[in-house]
Design a protein around this nucleic acid. Structure first.
Lengths: 135, 135
DNA sequence: GTAGATGCAAAGTATTTGCGACAAG
DNA sequence: CTTGTCGCAAATACTTTGCATCTAC
């Protein structure tokens, strides 16, 4: 088990409030990639007085602090996921919406090579595959 | 020179109106990746009576007809680009916003391989690299 | 004690839509 | 002709923000 979101907040100097603790916990427990609405729903079940504005503010803060990462998959709302050491990309089932996480070192290496070829240093990247399940 | 947007409309059964012809022309001439606002500005210079609703409706129609393709780069508005045979991905300069198009067959192949590994047939994909220029 | 966080409602963006008038095939 | 398109303004969806109050440190 790696660092908890709470300990990350402390090490990054992010003030911990009850609301943030709850949001952190819900995100830690999420195995999917909830959007703000869905996160707000889950959080509301624990503390119904948390406002959606706080959820928006918190995911943004957590993102800037490198605690969460934001995805903007095709045509949908922004979705969030806890950021851990191991980077991965996403394969999205266009029929069911299911999201599979994968890692491919080879692709990562090639991306760096491409950036390098144009004289750039890679600071970020986004790779999303959209597919349909084969029978 | 490949097929014009106009001829694509005809072959795809998309009704051609003055407005659509103008939008098609502006997109054909664009070497960048304009968002709807910018496209609306350019189009307005040719016919100031075209409404932004028509621009929205048209880019959506063209996208569904496979004439334009939509990009949702990090944190920005949707941007559009003419869709031609040769697929390419994008390298975005995070400082200047400049967009470089590139093709990497190797990466394309690996993407198919990844999808295949999980039992999926690739129908679409998105690869964006974000970098800063090296000195 | 004080800077920063929260809840609320109002304000922003980006995009879509209902409707009557109009134009393409 | 008839179906689909256009312009307009209103509506929607998502996200941000001003402000007064409250809370973590």
């Amino acid at each position: 088990m790696s660092e908890t979101i709470e300990s990350k907040c402390i090490s990054k100097g992010v003030k911990l409030t009850d609301q943030r603790r709850i949001i952190a916990r819900v995100m830690s427990e999420a195995s999917d990639h909830p959007d703000v609405d869905e996160l707000y729903n889950r959080v509301s079940k624990i503390d119904s007085k948390i406002s959606i504005a706080t959820v928006y503010r918190t995911v943004k803060l957590f993102e800037e602090s490198g605690i969460l990462t934001k995805h903007e998959f095709k045509g949908g709302k922004a979705r969030y996921e806890e950021l851990n050491e191991g980077h991965h990309d996403h394969l999205i089932d266009v029929r069911s919406g299911e999201i599979i996480e994968f890692v491919d070192e080879e692709i990562e290496k090639l991306q760096k090579k491409v950036a390098d070829k144009y004289g750039y240093e890679l600071v970020d990247h986004k790779l999303e595959l959209y597919g349909i399940k084969k029978k």
